[in-house]
């Protein structure tokens, strides 16, 4: 088992690349809007934005097939949109309204869609990791030939249950891809202060789980690594680890002033490595799209996001009877 960094890039059509641009832009604009609604008091509690990390979910969803499952932590809006969940339903859940995916009873951190095979939205750091392996366990048991993308962050990667899960996933050859989204900060703690070795992708070695590091600001690199991981899992070889190196532009949650890093660090990342800008310039320099084409996409995305905000404001709060429903099946 050799852990290695991948440089492979797939052949890709202009149409696909344009789609990734649109998908990533939708997440970014959606999150900006969510931040705005939070500022207006329409979204309460905790709200963790995904801005900066868009290429991770868009790249990996491009490697998934219908029926594959995914789940993640509380920083989950991007994963839901990438999985094809309706922006209206997600935004209405953020505002705590009846048309939200959880009827307003889950909120930003606890959202699910059986239809889109999105299994949360988990508020306890690391708890989704064994659950993801459990979904893979069920798929193996039922002989579904499906894989589960189990996302967690560099912070969660230090939780004990992650390694309990690696062990069992390896023993039982579970078709699960552990996607470590390394955005370099576990809330306010930089990776070098929390983590004894710099690489997470090697952490499966003790269990015989192959892993690789991926540039998470490059959607095509993410997709290529995702395809490799999917092929590994689907062929019955057991789990696979992808450490996707990414960056979150905003604070940990809305109420995080992010004083643990410099503004220059963030600005440098945004200016030099931004995944959306990278694809944008690929499209333009390769003449796969014109400025007008991209403007039209920007406009379309903006309309979708604005509509979701209106929908989320107009949707009523859950009826008081909802207090007592969905406690027992």
């Amino acid at each position: 088992m050799a852990a290695r960094k991948t440089k492979a890039k797939p052949n890709i059509s202009a149409q696909e690349l344009t789609q990734y641009y649109e998908d990533m832009l939708l997440i970014r604009r959606f999150e900006e809007k969510a931040g705005q609604l939070y500022g207006m008091g329409l979204i309460g509690g905790f709200c963790h934005l995904y801005i900066g990390q868009e290429a991770v979910v868009v790249g990996l969803e491009a490697a998934a097939e219908e029926g594959d499952k995914r789940l993640t932590s509380y920083r989950d809006h991007g994963h839901m949109l990438a999985a094809g969940m309706d922006p209206n339903g997600v935004m209405a859940e953020l505002t705590g309204r009846i048309d939200g995916y959880s009827k307003g009873k889950g909120g930003s951190m606890h959202m699910f869609s059986k239809e889109k095979h999105f299994y949360g939205g988990h508020g306890i750091v690391g708890a989704q990791v064994p659950i993801g392996a459990g979904l893979a366990f069920a798929d193996k048991y039922l002989e579904n030939n499906r894989v589960t993308f189990t996302y967690f962050g560099d912070g969660a990667a230090n939780q004990g249950q992650v390694y309990e899960t690696f062990n069992m996933a390896a023993i039982w050859d579970l078709p699960v891809i552990f996607v470590i989204e390394n955005n370099q900060y576990a809330m306010g703690t930089a990776q070098k202060r929390s983590t004894s070795s710099p690489d997470f992708y090697v952490r499966g070695e003790a269990f015989g789980i192959p892993g690789e590091a991926v540039d998470g600001m490059d959607v095509l690199a993410v997709k290529a690594a995702g395809q490799k991981a999917v092929a590994h899992c689907r062929s019955g070889k057991g789990p696979y680890i992808l450490e996707v190196k990414t960056y979150r532009y905003r604070g940990h949650s809305m109420s995080d002033p992010a004083k643990y890093r410099t503004r220059e660090e963030v600005q440098k990342m945004r200016q030099e490595r931004d995944s959306i800008e990278t694809v944008r310039s690929m499209l333009l320099t390769g003449k796969h799209a014109s400025e007008e084409d991209l403007k039209a996409i920007d406009k379309k995305v903006k309309e979708i996001v604005n509509a979701s905000a209106e929908f989320a404001k107009d949707s009523p709060e859950p009826a008081v009877e909802e207090l007592w429903t969905d406690i027992y099946a």
């Binding site: 499952k69 064994p130 392996a133 893979a136 366990f137 069920a138 899960t165 069992m168």
Partner: peptide
């Protein structure tokens, strides 16, 4: 048979129940 890892296997079982078992 599971390894001695209650937190982990309880979580895996929860996931399996979400997955239809």
């Amino acid at each position: 048979d599971t390894p001695i890892t209650e937190h982990g296997f309880a979580g895996i079982a929860v996931g399996a129940s979400f997955g239809g078992l």
